[in-house]
Design a protein around this nucleic acid. Structure first.
Lengths: 251, 251
DNA sequence: CGAGCGAACTGGTATTGACCAGTCGTTCAC
DNA sequence: GTGAACGACTGGTCAATACCAGTTCGCTCG
């Protein structure tokens, strides 16, 4: 099965073979593959070599290992497809915020934990919000959960000068969320800008979001404008549980 | 340095220590960390253990290994920030297509390779384009490069019934790109929908995009509508070289 | 009959040792 | 002086082996 003269490392040959068996359906999604020691016999290589192959496939997200149970083909992702296309005023007034709007569309039970703090603006925040570095900002640090499972981390920063005395500085921002409170105080929202990227999670993020290894996070930075920039929201999403949907007019 | 009684695996303790030294600046971005064999002496563990620690940090994207040279702290990503906010008719008429529009905004030299083929629609394509499975579609398979470096793979599928006889079936679609040709033929574009996710690359994608390990890809599926769905474009982007920017009106 | 213990599996961690394969500086021959 | 070759580094691969830790299930004992 393994060609030692090909120049291709043995562990890669094993990984390629297992990958092919996953794609062909011989190893079905959710089903276990043979144990490491069985694969050692099958391929005639040592256990570290088999483990290198499995590590590669785990990094690709194709396999999931469970201590004491076995190694499994990653099941198809739960397509939660939380539509994030709507930051419309209608949606805001109907719900309590953007995430709760996603929730009612996605058919899951949402919950959030919020921590409020105040801090001086760092350079990036000051730049995005048009403040001087060091000006005080209100920070809303949130963990969003869907049916109990954390799916998103979000850190909002707003100039304290426009949140003072409003429910935005409270854990519960009230009906319509922080954006509704902004509009009530004369900051009529004009548009949003979202910058999307992806990277591997830090160990802390992986722990909070309970990410299996090989699953990246999507990073979204949303800047809300009401004439001026009024909010920077840095969101970190589990890429295997969240899809972003954008609606773009043609002209 | 390593506490063998703590219950925390040695390779994780080493990884945590190296990560701290990166964050503190003791190991600077772009600079090499000590060689594996030096770290073996420093931490008093075996080489495979050191390699496990380095593998973990490579997977997190914190380190880059270069055979024969050393292991380096990943330098800050080149923020190319190719704005992809514009699918407007104005931008189309001014350039040759969406990617070339990004290019003129980003200040780099673009190049593409295109392969055209025709095939029956698979189930997903048929579903998205509102076709019967098996109907013929035109497939435009492209590799986009910025200053010679591949940054995006894109596979567009359009019903052959609306591309027949147009430059969309040619390698060079002419001024304004495929979207301009569609509009010339009576398919006035109304809106686009983009579904964004992320995952780890397949080995083939990693090879074409020259991704270092630990760098995920962003997946964007764009559906273009002209009354009906007229195009499905599956794009794969190198997340360390591309940021997506979306502009969202407030109401 | 049921609860619990233990054997036999699973993957996880770690060691020692060996050799291959790139990179780069130095040295030696021309 | 210059260029080729060598040596001393670097990381990459692989083996054989040992023991730890979580899971599962069957057998035994109450």
């Amino acid at each position: 099965m393994i060609d030692k003269t090909s120049g291709v490392p043995a562990y890669r040959q094993v990984a390629t073979d297992i990958r092919a068996k996953i794609e062909s359906g011989e190893y079905a999604p959710g089903a276990p593959i043979p144990s490491e020691r069985t694969l050692v016999d099958q391929y005639g290589v040592s256990r570290p070599t088999i483990r290198d192959a499995i590590a590669l496939l785990r990094q690709e997200g194709a396999l999931i290992a469970e201590h004491g149970r076995g190694v499994f083909v990653r099941p198809r992702a739960t397509v939660q497809r939380l539509s994030r296309s709507r930051l419309s005023r209608d949606a805001r007034t109907a719900n309590r915020g953007a995430f709760l709007g996603d929730a009612s569309a996605g058919g899951f039970t949402p919950s959030t934990t919020v921590k409020i703090r105040f801090e001086p603006a760092d350079e990036r925040t000051a730049d995005l919000l048009g403040l001087d570095a060091g000006e005080e900002v209100t920070v809303r640090d949130r963990v969003m959960r869907a049916d109990g499972l954390a799916v998103m981390l979000a850190v909002s920063r707003l100039p304290r000068s426009i949140t003072r005395g409003t429910a935005i500085e409270e854990v519960n921002t009230g009906p319509g969320g922080a954006y509704a409170r902004l509009e009530e105080n004369g900051h009529t929202l004009t548009h949003f800008e979202e910058i999307v990227s992806a990277r591997m999670p830090t160990p802390e993020e992986a722990s909070i979001l309970q990410l299996s290894s090989g699953v990246p996070v999507v990073r979204v930075t949303r800047v809300a404008y009401a004439g001026r920039a009024v909010e920077v929201n840095d969101m970190t999403l589990a890429s295997d549980r969240y899809e972003l949907i954008y609606h773009i007019p043609a002209d």
